[in-house]
Simulated assay, not measured.
Amino acid sequence: MIDVPRLMVLRAAAARGSMAAAARQLRITPSAVSQQVAALERQVGAPLVERRTTGITLTAPGRRLVAAADTIAAELAKAERHVADIAAGDRGSLAVATFASAGQRLLPEAVSGLATDRPNAEVKVMEAEPHAAVPMVRRGEADLAVVYHFSTPRPPDDWGIGDTLRYVPLRRDPVRVVLPADHRLAHHGTVRLADLATEPWVQGWADVGEMLDHYAAVAGFRPRVACYASDYLFMQSVVAAGMGVALVPTVALATDSTTGPLSGLVARPVDPTPIRYVGAVHPTDRWRSPLTEELLTRLRATVAD
């Protein structure tokens, strides 16, 4: 492999026409320039310059190497500009993992603003529930994850926050009870969970299902489940069809742009009120692109309650 620093010394000597002029440009001694060029000649096994009292002239091998040096210098300058742009957030890529309702309601404004201000940056959004999104950040597959959890503002211990990950709270997302529009409690301002003890329920999976089980137990009953679902829109469609009632976070409520809740549904505050906490997770043990911090700033501005 040709020694690139020596190649750049040869390039400087060729551009200036003498060892002495190259030395002044490089701020080293003429002897050092001569030694570097001689070492490069030994490395490639061919004379690169013809030394004269008035300066130097490149040989054919020397001209070929200087042409290569020009190409290398141009590419290095281009790379330097790109690295500077990446460091400033003007270029580069940002991978974001998010749960579905945040991807539908919380991310779009922040991401679109980032794309407008940073047109040369690439933003990739991947759908993932928190149990998958947090490991994606830890493995470097995502730069940022928008996540949720229930019970307390503090994220779950098994996420490993504080080790190599940082959690940034974004908003509280109160859970509502979704009822058919003709339900006997549809006109109540707030619905007591205990008053729904005999109702059929549309229950979510994993943490969402556990949330219903927990609050139902506090209210003194065990839910009679008519349908299991992993998608909030599907859950609400089932409720609208009259198959049961459901607990749905406010951010995930299906709405019509003009009339509010979808036709056939009402969403009411519930007592006690479960809270879904929404936050962001990003790594602390590796370099973080300014794009990550900028998206976080935009999320705080557009998402915070």
Rank of each mutant, 00 (worst) to 15 (best):
residue 85 D to W: 07
residue 86 I to M: 11
residue 89 G to Q: 10
residue 92 G to R: 03
residue 92 G to D: 04
residue 92 G to C: 02
residue 93 S to L: 02
residue 94 L to S: 04
residue 95 A to S: 15
residue 95 A to H: 10
residue 96 V to D: 06
residue 96 V to R: 07
residue 97 A to C: 12
residue 97 A to P: 13
residue 99 F to P: 00
residue 99 F to W: 03
residue 101 S to F: 02
residue 102 A to P: 04
residue 102 A to R: 02
residue 102 A to N: 06
residue 102 A to C: 04
residue 102 A to Q: 00
residue 103 G to V: 00
residue 103 G to Y: 01
residue 104 Q to R: 14
residue 104 Q to E: 15
residue 105 R to E: 09
residue 105 R to Q: 14
residue 105 R to N: 08
residue 105 R to L: 01
residue 107 L to A: 05
residue 107 L to P: 10
residue 108 P to S: 12
residue 109 E to K: 12
residue 110 A to P: 11
residue 110 A to Q: 06
residue 111 V to E: 11
residue 111 V to P: 05
residue 111 V to I: 15
residue 113 G to L: 11
residue 113 G to I: 08
residue 114 L to M: 08
residue 114 L to E: 08
residue 114 L to P: 06
residue 116 T to E: 12
residue 117 D to Y: 07
residue 117 D to M: 15
residue 117 D to F: 09
residue 118 R to E: 04
residue 119 P to A: 10
residue 120 N to Y: 11
residue 121 A to V: 14
residue 123 V to A: 07
residue 124 K to Y: 10
residue 125 V to T: 11
residue 125 V to M: 09
residue 125 V to I: 12
residue 126 M to C: 13
residue 127 E to C: 11
residue 127 E to T: 15
residue 127 E to K: 12
residue 128 A to D: 09
residue 128 A to G: 08
residue 129 E to H: 06
residue 129 E to M: 11
residue 129 E to D: 15
residue 130 P to R: 04
residue 131 H to Q: 15
residue 133 A to C: 10
residue 133 A to K: 03
residue 135 P to V: 02
residue 137 V to S: 00
residue 139 R to F: 02
residue 141 E to W: 10
residue 141 E to T: 15
residue 142 A to S: 03
residue 143 D to E: 12
residue 145 A to M: 09
residue 145 A to Q: 04
residue 145 A to Y: 06
residue 145 A to L: 05
residue 146 V to R: 00
residue 146 V to M: 08
residue 147 V to I: 02
residue 149 H to K: 02
residue 150 F to V: 01
residue 150 F to S: 03
residue 150 F to Y: 14
residue 151 S to V: 13
residue 152 T to L: 12
residue 153 P to E: 03
residue 154 R to N: 09
residue 156 P to C: 01
residue 157 D to Y: 08
residue 157 D to C: 06
residue 158 D to Q: 15
residue 159 W to D: 03
residue 159 W to N: 00
residue 159 W to C: 02
residue 161 I to D: 08
residue 161 I to L: 13
residue 161 I to G: 05
residue 162 G to L: 12
residue 163 D to Q: 11
residue 163 D to H: 11
residue 164 T to A: 13
residue 164 T to R: 10
residue 165 L to T: 02
residue 165 L to F: 07
residue 168 V to I: 06
residue 169 P to R: 13
residue 170 L to S: 05
residue 171 R to I: 01
residue 172 R to I: 08
residue 173 D to E: 06
residue 173 D to T: 01
residue 174 P to H: 08
residue 174 P to R: 11
residue 175 V to C: 04
residue 177 V to I: 04
residue 178 V to H: 00
residue 178 V to K: 01
residue 180 P to Y: 03
residue 181 A to V: 14
residue 181 A to I: 10
residue 182 D to M: 04
residue 182 D to L: 02
residue 182 D to G: 05
residue 183 H to P: 03
residue 186 A to L: 09
residue 186 A to K: 04
residue 188 H to I: 02
residue 189 G to V: 07
residue 190 T to E: 13
residue 190 T to K: 09
residue 191 V to M: 05
residue 191 V to R: 04
residue 192 R to M: 14
residue 193 L to K: 00
residue 197 A to C: 05
residue 198 T to W: 02
residue 200 P to G: 01
residue 200 P to V: 04
residue 201 W to Y: 07
residue 201 W to F: 08
residue 201 W to P: 00
